[in-house]
Design a protein around this nucleic acid. Structure first.
Lengths: 237, 237
DNA sequence: TAGTGGTCTAGACCACCGA
DNA sequence: CGGTGGTCTAGACCACTAG
């Protein structure tokens, strides 16, 4: 197909997307505008309705458009800034920068979690969980501390894992793929113990990444990762 | 259509997705497995190839599958944890929690940026930019500091904005929609000045969100947002 | 070079919900 | 109610690349 008055670069649906984005940027369709329906756009661009549909669907998923049956498609009024963070496994993260990965298991026990952890996972009072702490290293230097609680009711096999050779994180990703997760980031002051582990002064600002994962409704694990000063996590939109 | 042996819940392509995810979870198709081609799956599920194609395409975008022409579709071997952060405009962020929003313009000038800022945006030596600092408040209490540099070569109109009534952020989102951005998060210790503004002790851990945006190749703005201790940003996968 | 995914079409039916 | 988006189909051609 050819698109009215412009050289087709790439797939037709992408050409349509670029043209629509261009019209929004140039205020041909300012925020809030109701844009033509799929059939009209298909006629304008000289392509099938399905092609327009895909173009618009993806723009809606990206938050650029808002679509409602019968009401039509509108340019989003208050676009939300989104940042997609990729949080790789520690081993890969370290290896990518050409450094040697290592980790020390600091602590391992099956015990009752603190109330906050228990409540976060929605587990019954009195439950016992696998609790592990470890330090991840890059070229021998501290890279990240990990404080993890695993729900043994969901993953009883975890109790038998040798955490000195395989980190809990890697084991869980391999054995429990496709879980959903909630991630939160904040800044925390290093306690004396954390400072000693990470090789920074007590009170130093640490980036704290906490992640809780479920398989369906079943809570699997919650983990707190602390990173020494200077650590950054980067996301592209 | 009906899908072999299961009650159709929702669209056919979603039924296919659920079944595929289920097979991966249950290790019918462990990580690395090459799964059947689209035509075979269409035959198995009793639907059109386009339906299978959409199901697989979305799973690939989600990082669950990896697709290559001729090589087929495989279950991703080393899935990457992704967190989608939504970073709303400050005003909305504050309003959502039922608090009153306010902001103070602390500083405004057209001046030469520090070398780091200039280089980050790829601008010419000797360029002058609009520099603004402000403090965002929730119920009168400090919520976030903003330190922003705007490329006047890209947005000359910005020089004429009254930043005391409209924050630079809101103006930019309204006037320059659909820019691409790079966001990074880290922890930083509060300087004396930052501590005074945010009402926390010097050296306190602050969550530092930095965002640089472009429109195509044209750098628009870079901003540093500092948040007092306790602030969290949450993402869902 | 053959097989895979990537895309497009023309047509169809349906669900939803605003006018 | 009727127009909109949401989905599906059967078929087709193309682009890429692994073997």
């Amino acid at each position: 197909m050819t698109v009215a008055g412009c050289l087709p670069k790439g797939a037709a649906y992408q050409v349509v997307q670029r043209e629509i984005l261009s019209r929004i940027r140039n205020k041909v369709w300012p925020p809030g505008t109701r844009i033509p329906g799929e059939i009209d756009l298909a006629a304008e661009f000289g392509c099938a309705r399905a092609t327009i549909s895909r173009a618009l669907r993806e723009l809606a998923e990206a938050g650029v458009l808002e679509r409602k049956r019968r009401a039509g498609t509108r340019v989003t009024l208050n676009p939300v800034r989104r940042a997609m963070l990729e949080i790789p496994m520690v081993r890969q993260q370290v290896a990518e920068t050409g450094r040697a990965y290592g980790h020390d298991l600091l602590f391992r026990a099956v015990e009752a979690p603190p109330e906050a952890i228990r409540a976060r996972l929605g587990l019954a009072v009195g439950v016992r969980m696998l609790h592990a702490r470890c330090l991840h290293r890059a070229d021998g230097r501290p890279f990240q501390t990990e404080d993890r609680w695993i729900n043994l009711e969901a993953v009883p096999e975890a109790a038998g894992i040798d955490l000195t050779t395989t980190s809990a994180n890697e084991w869980l990703i391999r054995e429990m793929p496709l879980s959903s997760a909630e991630t939160s980031l904040s800044a925390a002051a290093a306690t004396d113990a954390e400072a000693a582990l990470l090789g920074c002064p007590p009170g130093a600002p640490l980036l704290d990444i906490e992640r809780t994962t479920w398989l369906g409704d079943l809570p699997i694990t919650t983990v707190r990762l602390l990173h020494p000063p200077g650590f950054r996590v980067v996301g592209r939109v």
